[in-house]
Amino acid sequence: MTADTTRAGGRTGPDDDDAERVLDWVVRHAARLGEAGAVPLRRIRVSTAALAVDVEWAEAAGAPPAPAPAAPSAEAEPPGTWIRSPMVGTFYRSREPGAPPFVEVGDVVEPGQQIGIVEAMKLMNAVQAEQRGRVSEIAARDGSPVQYDEPLLALVPAD
């Protein structure tokens, strides 16, 4: 690791040690996040590129399911489960230019399977499916900028 990083124009940005300290702080305080909810934590996801922490609690027994978040566009989303961008960046459908896409419409994906990449600040962040399903639509174009929580692709139950 380097002591600091020089940016264009000679300005010095945060060093890797700062990023490690922030990550260490988040890990140390994850237990507090778990205790803050009325139900157990299901997942904590930490992203870099200006740091985003995504916390998800399990649903309480007998509680009605939480309403789905509103779509970022005015158009209604087709039915299915959407895999959304975990951060702001550029979405890529394949590992490198000219390579076959990770998934196509009609493919069945399994939990943990990579479906794309979001590049943020020159870091390539894998986007993975969290559940099994058949790809019914790919909303994000290859090489297009995406926002946090923007729909990337839709999954419908696989036969």
Rank of each mutant, 00 (worst) to 15 (best):
M1P: 15
M1W: 05
A3L: 15
A3E: 12
A3D: 11
T5D: 13
T6M: 04
R7D: 12
R7F: 06
R7E: 12
R7H: 14
A8S: 14
A8K: 14
G10H: 06
T12F: 02
G13M: 01
G13W: 11
D15K: 01
D15L: 10
D15R: 01
D17Y: 06
D17N: 13
D17Q: 12
A19P: 00
A19I: 04
A19Q: 00
A19R: 11
E20I: 11
V22F: 03
V22N: 02
L23Y: 15
D24H: 13
W25D: 10
A31S: 14
R32P: 00
L33G: 00
L33M: 08
A38Q: 14
A38P: 10
P40E: 08
L41E: 03
R42S: 11
I44S: 05
I44P: 09
I44K: 03
V46T: 04
V46N: 07
S47W: 10
T48Y: 13
A50P: 07
L51E: 09
A52Y: 07
V53F: 11
D54G: 05
D54I: 10
V55I: 05
E56M: 00
E56Y: 07
E56K: 02
A58T: 02
A60C: 07
A61V: 07
A61I: 04
G62K: 07
G62L: 11
A63Y: 10
P67Q: 00
P67R: 06
P67A: 08
P69A: 06
P69I: 06
A71L: 02
P72K: 07
P72E: 00
P72A: 09
S73C: 11
A76D: 09
E77Q: 09
G80L: 03
G80N: 06
G80M: 05
W82H: 08
S85G: 02
P86W: 05
P86Q: 06
P86T: 01
V88H: 08
Y92T: 08
S94G: 08
S94D: 09
R95Y: 14
R95M: 13
E96Y: 15
E96L: 14
P97V: 11
G98K: 00
P101V: 09
F102H: 04
F102D: 04
V103C: 03
V103D: 03
D107F: 07
P111W: 09
P111R: 02
G112K: 12
Q113R: 12
G116E: 08
I117V: 05
I117G: 08
V118Q: 00
A120L: 02
A120Q: 04
M121W: 03
K122C: 01
K122L: 01
L123T: 15
L123C: 13
M124H: 11
N125T: 08
A126F: 04
A129T: 05
A129D: 08
A129S: 15
E130V: 12
E130R: 00
Q131N: 04
G133M: 09
E137F: 11
A140G: 02
R141F: 12
D142W: 10
G143Q: 10
Y148K: 13
P151D: 02
P157G: 06
P157K: 01
D159G: 15
D159Q: 14
